[in-house]
């Protein structure tokens, strides 16, 4: 099957994603059977309700004019029942209507860090199947969603006025992640102040990063944000830093598998061997760099 065909065959993509989500070794096999391919991952994180989904929807639509685009949106699983209410699609009106964009929801399934256990494999599979751009919206837990930094090439942090004070933001450590900041809901009072304060906090920590005001409902500022993301990705490509991002993604994919195996039952020999394989591959990757 040609690459283009696979990308266009949403049914095949969708069914394969389910198999990847449900079985790690199957995932490994499927990915191994597809050729490596360059693609970019954009992470979208930030406080609950800040507008991540609404913004992702618009960014994906802009991206899809030039690139084959997919979205994975993660919402939390209940730690008690394992059930989940996945509602990000509600806010993704344009992307879910578009014939070009593939949108998939995933439950966090007990994984901390705002992602889902099979997210690395899911993203790698989409990339190898022909998607150029994969947007990943993390759980809006507000805290320690730092995993996204290991998965994404560029991380967008979405803030919005009225969702908590600076102290909370700093306690959560969420200002420590992100390559580009969006202060969304610029139509609401307090947005420009929040942008100013965010700028000040970043400056204090010696990180000068772009901060953009957006309104993801009417689209104000979104094109500019899109251009910034494209620029950041372009710079990674030109400087070659993208290779390091990709290496890190593979490292963390393996580490994530190690973590999953340990949580399961690695007393079986087969599991032990699987565990060793991931660790050895990571040592190889580290030696190469």
């Amino acid at each position: 099957m040609s690459e283009r065909l696979f990308y266009a065959n949403q049914l095949a993509i969708s069914r394969t994603l389910t198999r990847i989500e449900n079985d790690r070794s199957v995932a490994r096999e499927i990915i191994g059977s597809l050729e490596e391919r360059d693609y970019h991952v954009v992470g979208i994180t930030g406080s609950p309700g800040a507008g991540k989904s609404t913004l992702t929807d618009r960014l994906a639509l802009l991206s899809s004019k030039e690139k084959r685009t997919a979205i994975i949106a993660i919402d939390p699983s209940s730690p008690f029942t394992g059930g989940a209410f996945l509602g990000d699609r509600i806010r993704m009106k344009s992307s879910t209507k578009s014939e070009e964009i593939f949108v998939r929801s995933m439950a966090s399934r007990g994984k901390v860090g705002g992602l889902s256990p099979s997210i690395y494999d899911a993203v790698e599979f989409l990339g190898r199947s022909g998607f150029d751009r994969v947007f990943v919206e993390t759980v809006g837990a507000g805290q320690s969603e730092t995993d996204i930094e290991n998965l994404a090439d560029v991380v967008l942090l979405v803030l919005a006025p009225g969702l908590g004070d600076d102290v909370q933001t700093m306690k959560a450590g969420i200002m420590e992640i992100g390559d580009i900041f969006a202060v969304n809901k610029m139509d609401l009072p307090g947005a420009s102040q929040l942008a100013t304060r965010t700028g000040a906090i970043l400056e204090m920590s010696g990180r000068e990063l772009p901060i953009i005001l957006t309104n993801s409902i009417n689209g104000q500022g979104v094109e500019e944000l899109h251009n910034l993301i494209e620029k950041a990705l372009g710079e990674l490509d030109i400087s070659g830093a993208i290779e390091e991002k990709r290496r890190r993604r593979t490292l963390y994919n393996n580490l994530n598998s190690v973590y999953q195996i340990i949580k399961e039952d690695f007393s079986e020999n087969a599991k032990l061997e699987e565990l060793m394989n991931y660790l050895l591959e990571n040592r190889r990757l580290s030696d190469e760099s």
Binding site: S78, G83, A84, F85, L86, G87, I90, S105
Partner: peptide
């Protein structure tokens, strides 16, 4: 919500 509480992953489209 009832399905979620029964341990299912529910995609809700609005």
């Amino acid at each position: 919500m009832a399905l979620r509480d029964a341990g299912m992953e529910v995609i809700y489209t609005g």
